[in-house]
Every structure is written in C-alpha cells, then in structure tokens.
Simulated assay, not measured.
Amino acid sequence: MDTGPRLRLNNGVEMPALGLGLFLAPADETTGAVVTAINDGYRLIDTAAGYLNERAVGEGIRRSGINRSEMFVTTKLWVTDYGYDEALRAFDLSLDRLGLDYLDLYLLHWPTPEQFDKTLAAYHAAEKLLTEGRVRAIGVCNFVPSRLETLISQTDVVPAINQVELHPFYNQRETREADARDGIITQSWAPIGGIFTRLQSLGREVSGHPLEHPVVLELARKYGKTAAQIIIRWHLDHGLSVIPKSVKPSRIAENIGVFDFQLTNEDVARIDELDKGMRAGPDPETFSRDSYQVDVTAQ
C-alpha cells in the first residue's frame, strides 16, 4: 500500500506529507472516517482540542488495528488554555481523550496577538513536553512571518510546522518562503478550498471556488484526475504537507489517490497564478481568545 511521500522535520522526525484533516468533523462520524482513512493508506491524522473530536479520533485509531508506531498523530492546544501551567494541563487532557501515550506533533492553534505573552508561555510548555519525550515535534498554526520571528527569538525550539490556510486562491508565498528560511515545514489547511464551501453553507457570498476554476478543471482533464486531486498534487509538488478534510469514504479515497502522477513545473505555475490573496478564514493578527467560544471539555 502506497502511503505517500514523507517530509523530514527540522528535528529529524519524519512525517507523512499527506494526512486526514478533521476540522469540526462531527464526533459520531469521525471514528469511521479515521478507520476508513487508515485502511486507505493514511498515516497522518490531524485533529485539535477545539474540534471536539479527539476521543473519536483515538477510538478510530484503536479500531483500525494499526500499530501505534505507524501513525503520526497531531492535535492542537486551544487558545483558552494558553499559559504555561494551563497548556500542560490541557495537553494531559488531550492525550487522555485520544487514549495515547505520546503525540507525534503538538501545535498552538492560533497566535493571540493581544495576549502574546500567554502564547509564548504555552509554547514554552510545549518545549518542556518535547524535552520530556511526550511529543516528538512541536509547532504552530496561523503564524504570519513577523509573529513567527518574534516567537523564535524568544523561545529555544524553532517550530517544526506552521499550519496555515493555503489553497490556490491564497497561496501564502511570503509565509512559505519565510517558513523555508527557518527550516519550518508549511502545512496547508483548507487545501482544496473547503473553507469556501463552509462559508457558503453559512450564507456568506464567496467569489468562486478553487475546485471550479477553469484552469484546475482543464488540468483535471489533462491528467485524468479530479479537480481535488490536481490541487492536492499542487501542494505536494510545492513540498508542502497537506491535510484535506473529509468524512466521506469516497472523498477520503479520492484525496489519497495522488501518488501516481506529478504536475509539470509549467502546470504548477499556472495554478500559482490563480492566487487572489483571498483569505477565507480568520485573520491571525486579529484573532483573540474570544474569537470563537469553544468548550474543549465538551467531548
């Protein structure tokens, strides 16, 4: 079974390049999705305390029957648990919900610019967990380059990962380049534009969708692939980690069916040109502890 390419993090740990994202996946659908994904070859599972499905993820891993050592499991610290002692307690709770002895990757979910001291304290807690061997790698999500440089200058461990919104309409060139300079892997959330679908479901008007763009559809015909597979391959060909979300078995299988082809440099560049600077998710520089009301204990 082809489980796809792997990326070497800046501390030497290897991580699958492609994984299953579970942003707000309902807990009652998550366990089955995880089992399906593992059976289809996924070895990276990405969840978060704020997704309220950590228990279901852990149950899915156990039901799959796979050896724990074959899996790469990521979860994230929610912003209401920022601070040093708070983060350590929250980590223990996440690990308990997942039913695991260690994590492969622990991420800070968002920066909180108005209380960045708490963000830094939480990252120091993650450094302690790394030193103790309770996590294999640590990192951040949604950090713009300037905010990331501040964190690096005031901590001891350079993040292994910066997970950010990244898709053809918002390709984050500046962030990708800054991450690469610091030896950080950029990981793409909402990689095929799922955030646009979510906004539409909430009644928000959005301008187009990456999956429907004529260039993407043309390349899908050229390669005999789906639009989603073309976009996922674009991420991989840029050397990114990519975590498309789905709980549907057919989509889960579709999203991993990208290891038998590569885009040409010219076709990668054509998709690069679709960038609109169009962020659909929250702005990290205005994100606060009050941006979302999430009770992470309600799972």
Score class of each variant (00 low, 15 high):
residue 64 S to D: 07
residue 152 I to V: 13
residue 87 A to Q: 09
residue 79 V to L: 08
residue 282 P to T: 10
residue 236 L to V: 08
residue 141 C to W: 02
residue 189 W to I: 07
residue 92 D to P: 05
residue 153 S to N: 03
residue 79 V to H: 12
residue 209 H to A: 10
residue 141 C to S: 14
residue 70 E to H: 11
residue 115 Q to W: 10
residue 124 H to K: 12
residue 84 Y to T: 04
residue 257 G to K: 08
residue 51 Y to Q: 00
residue 225 K to W: 03
residue 80 T to S: 11
residue 264 T to V: 10
residue 223 Y to V: 06
residue 239 G to L: 06
residue 158 V to W: 01
residue 121 A to R: 09
residue 131 T to G: 13
residue 133 G to V: 04
residue 124 H to E: 13
residue 97 R to C: 06
residue 10 N to A: 01
residue 236 L to Y: 11
residue 127 E to Y: 03
residue 58 G to N: 11
residue 200 Q to D: 10
residue 88 L to E: 09
residue 132 E to D: 15
residue 199 L to Y: 15
residue 296 V to Q: 09
residue 111 P to T: 07
residue 156 D to E: 15
residue 249 P to G: 07
residue 108 L to H: 06
residue 156 D to L: 15
residue 297 T to Q: 12
residue 6 R to N: 13
residue 128 K to F: 01
residue 57 V to S: 05
residue 243 I to D: 02
residue 83 G to I: 01
residue 96 D to S: 15
residue 214 P to F: 08
residue 194 G to M: 06
residue 142 N to W: 10
residue 48 A to P: 00
residue 115 Q to L: 14
residue 141 C to Y: 02
residue 229 Q to K: 04
residue 294 V to D: 08
residue 250 S to L: 13
residue 235 H to D: 11
residue 273 E to D: 14
residue 287 F to C: 06
residue 143 F to S: 05
residue 87 A to F: 09
residue 60 G to R: 02
residue 219 L to T: 01
residue 298 A to M: 14
residue 266 E to A: 12
residue 8 R to F: 06
residue 163 Q to V: 05
residue 247 V to S: 09
residue 269 A to W: 04
residue 41 G to V: 10
residue 207 S to L: 12
residue 24 L to N: 14
residue 161 I to D: 05
residue 188 S to F: 01
residue 165 E to R: 02
residue 120 L to T: 14
residue 283 D to T: 00
residue 3 T to P: 12
residue 114 E to H: 12
residue 197 T to D: 15
residue 135 V to Q: 02
residue 157 V to C: 03
residue 68 R to C: 05
residue 20 L to M: 02
residue 62 R to Y: 05
residue 157 V to H: 07
residue 97 R to T: 06
residue 219 L to N: 02
residue 57 V to L: 05
residue 272 D to F: 08
residue 237 D to M: 05
residue 294 V to W: 04
residue 148 L to G: 02
residue 71 M to G: 00
residue 117 D to P: 03
residue 205 E to V: 13
residue 265 N to M: 10
residue 222 K to L: 11
residue 246 S to K: 07
residue 263 L to C: 04
residue 199 L to V: 12
residue 96 D to M: 13
residue 256 I to K: 15
residue 239 G to E: 04
residue 37 A to P: 03
residue 79 V to N: 13
residue 3 T to F: 15
residue 39 N to Q: 15
residue 292 Y to F: 14
residue 171 N to W: 13
residue 84 Y to R: 05
residue 84 Y to S: 01
residue 224 G to H: 03
residue 43 R to G: 00
residue 153 S to Y: 00
residue 66 I to F: 15
residue 225 K to F: 08
residue 91 F to A: 01
residue 284 P to E: 03
residue 62 R to Q: 11
residue 102 Y to Q: 07
residue 102 Y to I: 03
residue 67 N to W: 11
residue 273 E to Y: 06
residue 75 T to S: 14
residue 224 G to T: 06
residue 178 A to C: 08
residue 143 F to D: 07
residue 278 M to N: 14
